[in-house]
Design a protein around this nucleic acid. Sequence first.
DNA 1: CTTTAATCCGAACAGCGTCAAGATTCTTCC
DNA 2: GGAAGAATCTTGACGCTGTTCGGATTAAAG
Lengths: 229, 229
Amino acid sequence: MASPARPTPRASYHHGDLQAALLSAAEALIAESGSAHITLRECARRAGVSPAAPAHHFGNLQGLLEAVAALGFEDLAQSMEAADAALPPAARLRAMGEAYVRFALRSPGRFRATFGEKIRPAESANERLRTAADQAFGLLRSEVARLPACARRPSRVLAQTLLLWSTVHGLATLLLDRRLDHLVSEQNEDSAFETLGRAVLDQLKSLCEEDAVAVGKPRKAPRLRRNSR
Amino acid sequence: MASPARPTPRASYHHGDLQAALLSAAEALIAESGSAHITLRECARRAGVSPAAPAHHFGNLQGLLEAVAALGFEDLAQSMEAADAALPPAARLRAMGEAYVRFALRSPGRFRATFGEKIRPAESANERLRTAADQAFGLLRSEVARLPACARRPSRVLAQTLLLWSTVHGLATLLLDRRLDHLVSEQNEDSAFETLGRAVLDQLKSLCEEDAVAVGKPRKAPRLRRNSR
DNA sequence: CTTTAATCCGAACAGCGTCAAGATTCTTCC
DNA sequence: GGAAGAATCTTGACGCTGTTCGGATTAAAG
């Protein structure tokens, strides 16, 4: 599993587009071995460059990861925005959720970097990352706000957004981490993903349409408390 | 951010319960700084032991992480199983989902280790990890199978299980990764978690009860394709 | 008490992220 | 065209990491 990774000698002293080369190397590495296995030196190696070269473009490994994550949020926002704006809110939300999961499967490295533990858009100094994250979230939230059920009860927008996001994000995460082998081992993988994805997203749609009937009826529930950060 | 971490000298040559000390050190470290920042040497340091000592108990860092993950799956299964068995399936599923999220908030280190990228129960040599993961999943699945809607259409059990799991897992993940600050910044954090948690789990319950009406009506949807592992 | 097995240590190795100083090349301005 | 300055990349070094090895120490078994 060690990486020989030919140093890829290049013609000129300057690389030409090291920035892009490092970004795609990082993405590929994460897609191959998970975002924990990524190594700044290996990215440099694949770009055919010395271990210290990336520092001039991204500062450090965290900077490189945040750059990939910024790309991820922008890609995600763009993918979701591409959903037909003429659709009614529920149908468009379904399409956006599908775009979310599809993005994760299409660009696993980018998705993992974007939602990895090391990325904290709110606390990052990378402004591009912060705004891209805000934009992606804002898209979802504003579309939820257009749901008839939420238009009637604006106080429900946040909770409804959270619910949708949780389902879609959970599905994408579990798919990517291959935690569903129990569920799909019997069938062809592709058709299983298709079946499950459609079922989930149909549920997601109907759920949005029904939410108006499921409010109220308070229940006693002990408080959720977190122990440490 | 460097760790002084007094070497904690101990009286006797043998530690006494190094295994447990390493496990809790690992859990604490992950809870503090995320599962990427964890270091085998730092765990040994906190246990007051040389860097090579853990090898005798867990083989390597991966072994230690898998041991924590096994504890996590067992804890998770036990927490879910504690939901009142006399409840009707939908209500019990709601309680199990709540237990899932509560477990994540109660033991963030354990949860992160359990569902971290480095843990692949299906491919692990740690049998305890595999069986614990199977048990936790089996609990959820068998409860879903008891839903009247699923009892009438057994073919829907898998998809419904996946949907529930996705929602709960996504919520737990997003909460733990603090990706919800946009949603809860205006309110007190605890009450926000309570509100959101209740809303989500109520939805989850009603969703289970309605699933019988939302089947059928096939839709055209392009296939989900994954690019690389 | 002696043997055996279980633990733990100390030292070492390669690989990692990062930094400082120097080499090389592109750009700009005269 | 040519020189000054900025941008880019390399080299070498530092401390930290995971892991392995042989040896020291202790507990358990016979």
